[in-house]
Computed example of a mutant assay.
Amino acid sequence: MSHVAFLGGGSFGTALGILLANNGCEVSIYDRKKSVVNDININRKNDKYIKNLNIPKNVTAYNDLDETIKDAKFIVLSVPSHVIRAVSSSLKDKISEDVVIISIAKGIEEGSNLRLSQVIEEELPNNKVVILSGPSHAEEVAFDIPTTVVVASRDLDAANKVQDLFISKNFRVYTNDDLVGVEVGGAVKNIIALAAGVCDGIGYGDNSKAALMTRGMAEIVRIGIKLGGNPETFLGLTGMGDLIVTCTSLHSRNRRAGFLIGKGESTEEAIKDVGMVVEGIKACKAFYEIKEKLNVEMPITDVLYKILFEKKDPKEAVVALMEREKKNEIYY
Rank of each mutant, 00 (worst) to 15 (best):
D64V: 10
K285Q: 15
K94V: 02
E219K: 11
A257C: 14
E123K: 12
E232F: 14
S133D: 11
L132I: 08
S89W: 01
I202K: 00
L194D: 05
G229E: 12
D144C: 05
G10K: 01
L7K: 02
C199A: 15
S112G: 01
S133K: 03
E316P: 00
K94A: 10
R44Q: 14
Y204E: 11
H137T: 07
K291T: 15
F143L: 11
R85C: 01
N170L: 03
K315A: 13
R222H: 02
I191N: 02
A72L: 03
K106V: 05
I42H: 06
V173P: 04
R85Q: 14
V151E: 05
V182A: 12
I101K: 05
D93T: 12
A142N: 01
H3I: 13
P135G: 13
E297C: 00
V27Q: 00
D164A: 11
A61F: 06
E269Q: 14
C284F: 09
V119T: 06
A286I: 03
A320E: 15
P125S: 09
I120G: 08
V36C: 06
L243S: 03
A105K: 10
G241K: 09
D71Y: 10
L91K: 04
E232Q: 12
N58M: 06
D39S: 15
V319L: 14
T148Q: 11
V318N: 03
S11I: 00
E289H: 00
E139S: 05
E26I: 09
A286M: 05
N190W: 08
L235M: 15
M276V: 14
A21I: 02
M213S: 02
R85M: 09
N176P: 09
L20Q: 09
V173N: 01
V99G: 03
S78M: 06
L114Y: 06
R115K: 13
E183S: 12
D178I: 08
V83E: 05
Y288N: 13
Y62Q: 01
I191G: 07
G216E: 02
A320Q: 13
K312P: 00
G186S: 07
D313G: 03
F6H: 03
V151Y: 08
Y204N: 02
A86S: 15
S78Q: 06
S78Y: 03
S81T: 12
V59C: 14
K51E: 14
V296D: 05
A159R: 14
S89T: 14
P299W: 08
L65T: 00
L260A: 08
P314H: 09
L16C: 08
L91C: 10
L237N: 11
G262M: 11
T246C: 05
A5I: 03
R253F: 02
V198C: 12
P299E: 06
E329Y: 15
I244D: 00
K315V: 15
A138L: 08
V76W: 02
E219D: 04
